[in-house]
Every structure is written in C-alpha cells, then in structure tokens.
Nucleic acid binder design. Structure first.
Lengths: 66, 66
DNA sequence: CTTTTTAGTAAAGCTAACTTTACATTTGAT
DNA sequence: ATCAAATGTAAAGTTAGCTTTACTAAAAAG
C-alpha cells in the first residue's frame, strides 16, 4: 500500500510526533507507516485521514502487490 | 469501528463467501469483520470498499470507542 | 419435508501491527 | 559551528488480524 502521509503532513505542517499524538499512536508507528514498513489498521487509517480532513483513499492507495 | 457490510452486500446481492473471494480473504474473515469480531487492515478495508464502488468511509465508520 | 446454500462460531497456529526503550542521523535555527 | 527538533531505525514483547479445519444453525430452494 502506498501512502501520501509525508505530503499531507507537509501541507498541514505537522511533525510525525504531532500526528501521532493527534491519532493516539506512538511516533514510531507513524514513521513506520510513512516509510512503508507496515500497513495501518483500518481504524488508524481512518483516524489519519480524518486528521487531514481527507478521504482514506486520498491518503492510502492500494498497489498491485496488495 | 462500525461497518455497513451487511447492507452493502445486500445492495449488491452477494454472499460473504463471494465477497471473500473477490477481495482475497477467507469467508470467516469477512464474517468476523461483519459481526464486529475484529477490525480489518487498511488494505482489506480499501479492497472491500472498492469491491462495492464506495469510499472506505461509506462502509467503515469510526466510533467514540476507537 | 429434504437438500443445499449461507451464516455464525471456535480453536490452534502464524504473521503483522503496535508498544516501549534506546540510540544514530539529518535538518533547521540561532 | 552549535544546539535542538525531527526523523530513521532496531530489538523485544504483546496483541490483533487472518488462516485452516471443522462443526452447528438458519434460510432458501426444490
């Protein structure tokens, strides 16, 4: 799964740590998702999307490999 | 997390087994998600939404408890 | 009423998501 | 050039997502 987290954070000018706090996970979790180390749960994905005022699909996109 | 899987399946008139096959998981996984036994991964949530031609948020909704 | 399809549930096992702690590297500000 | 903030990564541990097999119950079709 691809994600546009880095871009969305840049648009909103917030750090990984700030996003983490906003959605209730650790900073490392946000970093790991952002760099593609793993896929978030649907709950976390929805919270992240909501934090940016976007649809989940605008932030997270399926790849052929999924 | 709430979900509208049962309704979406009814609209599309497909069984849990058919949906499972479409998105590449076991029938039990679909059933478990539908009855709220657990939350899907973001990948699976996106695949399910796509299978119904809807946005993830139309099928899966955050609750206060999330 | 009998058969078939669909749905619900359970146990055991495996892998991936997430945590905490901790340290190294990069970037930005002064 | 220095200090602070932000990012990247790692290891160890816990929990949740998902699988397979298997059985029961409900609903639909005949």
């Amino acid at each position: 799964m691809k994600n546009r987290l880095k871009v969305a954070r840049a648009e909103h000018n917030i750090s990984q740590a700030e996003l983490a706090e906003k959605v209730g996970v650790s900073r490392q979790t946000i970093n790991s998702i952002e760099v593609g180390r793993y896929t978030p749960s649907a709950v976390l994905a929805l919270k992240i999307a909501r934090a940016f005022g976007k649809m989940a699909e605008e932030i997270f996109q399926l790849e052929d490999s999924d």
